[in-house]
Design a protein around this nucleic acid. Structure first.
Length: 121
DNA sequence: TACATGACTCTAG
DNA sequence: ACTAGAGCCATGT
């Protein structure tokens, strides 16, 4: 399914020092309801080797259970390494989406659509 | 074909 | 602000 191909491209556009949610990636990839599939794809490495998987978190800013990364605090370390503050909560490691969430513009969304159309995916 | 699973999200109370 | 519960959909068995 080329949804994964599109999702891979979107993920690679998340700026260093910012994070995006699964739903946001799904939206920009043209399938707003496929947030779960984005998680599935990242977990299985279906989006490619070079995708910054650590920059994808859930809508509330919670890091994944870390189960998919090599070590428990891998995702946290990678994020802190690029300046993202991570704090602990009852539910796990979390980032403040207000401060570190990637705010894509309508224009960004439009550019993705035209790019995908041009690529035929 | 049928049913369970899950790096999710939205809504109602 | 918080929490269940429902909705969601590609995959795997």
């Amino acid at each position: 399914m080329d949804f994964y191909q599109r999702a891979g491209i979107v993920c690679r556009c998340i700026p260093r020092g910012k994070v995006a949610s699964y739903g946001q990636i799904a939206l920009l990839s043209g399938k707003p309801k496929n947030a779960r599939q984005v998680g599935y794809a990242l977990n299985r490495g279906k989006l490619g080797e070079d995708v910054p998987a650590h920059r994808v978190v859930n809508g509330r800013g919670l890091l994944s259970g870390a189960a998919a990364f090599e070590t428990f605090d891998m995702q946290k370390n990678l994020l802190e390494g690029e300046g993202v503050e991570v704090f602990g909560t009852r539910d796990g490691w979390q980032v403040d989406m207000k401060r570190f969430g990637w705010r894509h513009t309508l224009k960004d969304a439009e550019e993705f659509r035209t790019l995908f159309r041009k690529m035929g995916i």
